[in-house]
Amino acid sequence: MERFARLADTFFDLEVMRRAFADLLTEGLVNTIYISASAMLFGLAGGLVFALMAISRRWWIRLPARAYVDLFRGLPAILVILLVGLGLPTAGIRPFGRYTPAYAILALSIIAAAYITEILRAGIQSVEKGQMEAARSLGMTYLQAMWLVIVPQGVRRVLPPLTNEFIILTKDSSLLFVLGLSLGERELYRIGQQVASRTGNYSAVMLAGLFYLLITIPLTRLVNYMDTRMREGKPGAGEEEPLELDPSASVPGGRR
């Protein structure tokens, strides 16, 4: 019983949680969402470019995309974060001056782009060949056909793994603490961890976890909902030719 009491004290002390609540809500949650959402946006843009490169018929266009994906999917996130957040400025490359969150976003974007490349590539390649042919036969250029016809369909099919990627990105943003975030820049985990190192009490970290769940659980539900809709082939769920969709194709390339 004494162990449980200690567990409750160390991890679930309501008083410690109450004191950390405001910081977690107004600073941590805001920054976590801001950082993850920005990284997702840039990751999508980068991922799209690399995905288009990855399906090129020319090997010298494919090669850099392949290398990029292999490199940044293969490295631990924390290493990339250090490399970008500390390595770049050390090398004198300081596009964002001293604004650490921007380096953090860049690092997470680089990682996200690598995963999103694979997700989008799978999505784009799942679009029937006839769509490209129809678009070309209507006089569209390759890039027009890609942008107006293929990509919109491909992206819809991979919305579940893309959402999944955003969930993982949100959780990965907790690794940014290694860069040192000052007051006002701290994300959820950082705030909780700081309380823990000052007091030896983990309750604030647990409360931070609760805030992560606040972001991730609705998204997880959304992924499941979209998955189900796609499998059942209801219109408006993104997939409009349900009979041709292999259920396993609805989550290609994502990380779990």
């Binding site: 029937e128 769509q131 042919e133 678009a135 006089g139 016809v149 409009e240």
Partner: peptide
């Protein structure tokens, strides 16, 4: 791409844009 505009094509599988 310009030349192709002079040639229309209709496919067996329709190939309408589903979105």
């Amino acid at each position: 791409d310009r030349l192709r505009q002079r040639v229309g094509m209709v496919f067996q599988q329709f190939n309408l844009f589903p979105h």
